[in-house]
Design a protein around this nucleic acid. Sequence first.
DNA 1: CGAACTTTTGATATCACTCAAGGGACGTGG
DNA 2: CCACGTCCCTTGAGTGATATCAAAAGTTCG
Lengths: 250, 250
Amino acid sequence: MSQVEPSATSLPNPLVRKLEGFTTLSDADRALLERISAETRLVSPRTDLVRQGAKPDGVFLIMEGMACRQKHRAKGQRQIMAYLLPGDLCGLDDALLNKMDHSITTLSICRVVRVAPETMTEILQQHPQVARALRISGLVDEATLREWLVNLGRRYATERLAHLFCELLVRLQAVGRATEISYALPLTQADLADTMGMSDVHVNRSLQELRQQGLIEFRRGQLTIGRPSRLQAFAEFKADYLHRGDQAAT
Amino acid sequence: MSQVEPSATSLPNPLVRKLEGFTTLSDADRALLERISAETRLVSPRTDLVRQGAKPDGVFLIMEGMACRQKHRAKGQRQIMAYLLPGDLCGLDDALLNKMDHSITTLSICRVVRVAPETMTEILQQHPQVARALRISGLVDEATLREWLVNLGRRYATERLAHLFCELLVRLQAVGRATEISYALPLTQADLADTMGMSDVHVNRSLQELRQQGLIEFRRGQLTIGRPSRLQAFAEFKADYLHRGDQAAT
DNA sequence: CGAACTTTTGATATCACTCAAGGGACGTGG
DNA sequence: CCACGTCCCTTGAGTGATATCAAAAGTTCG
């Protein structure tokens, strides 16, 4: 399922990038984060990192690829409740509770790091700025969840997808994983369906409509957004919930 | 809009009840919480406690009634993203971010307490057990949000409503605001619609169906669940996400 | 080259929305 | 204590959005 691998590419460190969007880090902070994220391993698609019902043990840092939080219902239906992108740390808060009420699962091939609980505790105590950034990051995750709820509750299928694509553009740009108009989206239409609370067939048709309207291109796992501002208007996307660029209050 | 009122009834203090569900409190902790929650004021229905776009200032503690977190879309649509019940503290985490991305609004008449930021900071520093319980409480709120997402994404209208009613039963029981089978639900069908991402007409018809199946009664703001286990089965409700009764890990 | 996925298409069924109007309940003022 | 307004709940009819089922076409990868 996984093996230790040296970090491969020369992409910017996504964790550092992300946290610097929330607060100012010292050289020591940065060095620490770089050190942590050195020992990565590859995990194949559709593999549980943390399983529902288990007691969380340590946290996972996503370095490459996409993972998610998901739940299953009795008749095999599933709902994805969050995407975990490069730079996202998961399981930190979950550790405070006894039992996972959902699973954390890879969607694509992922390069991840597991950080032991003790290491994590030490970091939080000795690097207050990192702790602060992680705290803020958690709040943004929660705000994102709320926006997803609006998405499912009050938008049509095409708007829903468009909104998700807008969000991913912003989030991936923030960690240097997207150009101005394009990014890798290694998801299946069924994955999108389980994210948006719709059927895979309807995802297919909605994607076609977005393509026809010239809002997106989506081929071979690469999503391209012709004019992001147009897609944002279509989806009524306001990035404020991601709290990028507003250095948070003390 | 509001005025200071002495605490009226002899109901148990909901904040104490709630936090004791998450951790063990000392007498000093309890005394502190009681002291804080003494100076309540009444707020009329449909009043913003915190407005979208504003900078959060202080936290609000709900002592009686129901409030919510909500967002509005352009064409007047709204989506309720969380219910705030007696014992719920809101705005604590929000304060770490610069700007509210949603509003906190009363649904019914509420008895609330506003706690100043300085007071809150002091409490968190001098009462670690309270801080810990509040932290866990926040995580449960997030888990609740995730479950709501499953609800909107993967359940039919009747199941959705049933699931909400099950959740409220558990949460209200935990703060002594519900009997084994019944509680006050001072909401309009339009409120329910904006919670469930459906139209008010469809809420009406779905409620009728739940009534016909003998699963609920709902009259004059009072909801009664004949046999909770039946309703839970119908909604596929598992209370684990509320993390009641599992004393969380250290 | 073939097996296993994934995407696409068509046809049909169903769930939920919109619009519009009637019926209650409740509070207020005369 | 009645009249009236205002919400809120309820009903009906028609429409629209999305799901389901089934099968064909395209991809990917060993």
